[in-house]
Write a protein that binds this DNA or RNA. Structure first.
Lengths: 134, 134
DNA sequence: TTTTCATGTGAGATAATCTAACATATGTTT
DNA sequence: AAACATATGTTAGATTATCTCACATGAAAA
């Protein structure tokens, strides 16, 4: 995972901005948090701070609600997605260890990964916030 | 110019977040505004709202101040930069009209531009906010 | 028809930000 | 040296944005 993961999880946006960006009411956003669909960070003074990922999720929630899905359904869908990501990770991991690398192969790989550490790579299924940034 | 120009000028960030992101004090940020180095937007209730471009500029200001440049100098530098951008635009424009396109060439170009309208293209000299987004 | 769900709305509290004024350290003129 | 200018800190008092909690409501489900 590249450093972009960090950036997309950085708490940056006040609820007012998120309302504009998502066209959701404060009530709705707080309600979705109450149902644990999002978990925005908080300032020292308890104000919510949302990340790009939070906003993506809110846009997904909005879509699903428009399609008639309720809280429970959305939560399930998010969990399934999350699991599929995890299992993808596991597969990758399993595949990796299965290959029984020689020491030299291993060193080569390691070096390659280090060299690519700074590069930007995106998770495959992004939300719609890509509209707002390049 | 692509739609990314709009995105980079979208007022999104409160002064608190900008303080964290730039490591400048509120006093400093307001002082730079007073000297017209930045012009953040305002909410209905008069709170400042900063764009990605504003933040890039603040990081540039910080650099220049570290290098001993004063307000007047920074303002000059910004103006020169702005002019160079404008003249680049003019050059591009001049080059374009000079070519005296045929109608068919023109239609082809237009279609191409329309197809690429949604793509992400960056301005050449970005600030440092690229660290925060992909 | 009750209940439940998703949202609206209002009250009262508090955090974040605003402007304006004065303080201060460092560097510049006279 | 004394006076001034520049960039920033700090404080005070006012106002906005957000918070939680409670109650209201329309639509859908039971």
């Amino acid at each position: 995972m590249g450093g972009s993961e960090i950036r997309r999880n950085m708490p940056l946006f006040s609820i007012g901005i998120v309302m504009q960006l998502t066209d959701l009411s404060a009530r709705q956003i707080r309600y979705y948090e109450e149902h644990e669909l999002i978990s925005p960070a908080r300032t020292e003074g308890n104000k919510r701070l949302f990340s790009l990922n939070d906003i993506d999720k809110l846009l997904e929630i909005k879509d699903l609600i428009d399609q008639g899905v309720n809280m429970a359904g959305i939560k399930k869908i998010f969990n399934v997605k999350q699991e599929s990501v995890i299992s993808a990770e596991e597969k990758k991991q399993a595949e990796k260890t299965r290959r029984e690398l020689s020491d030299s192969e291993l060193r080569k790989l390691l070096r390659k990964e280090l060299l690519q550490a700074g590069r930007f790579n995106r998770s495959t299924d992004r939300g719609d916030m890509s509209r707002f940034f390049h």
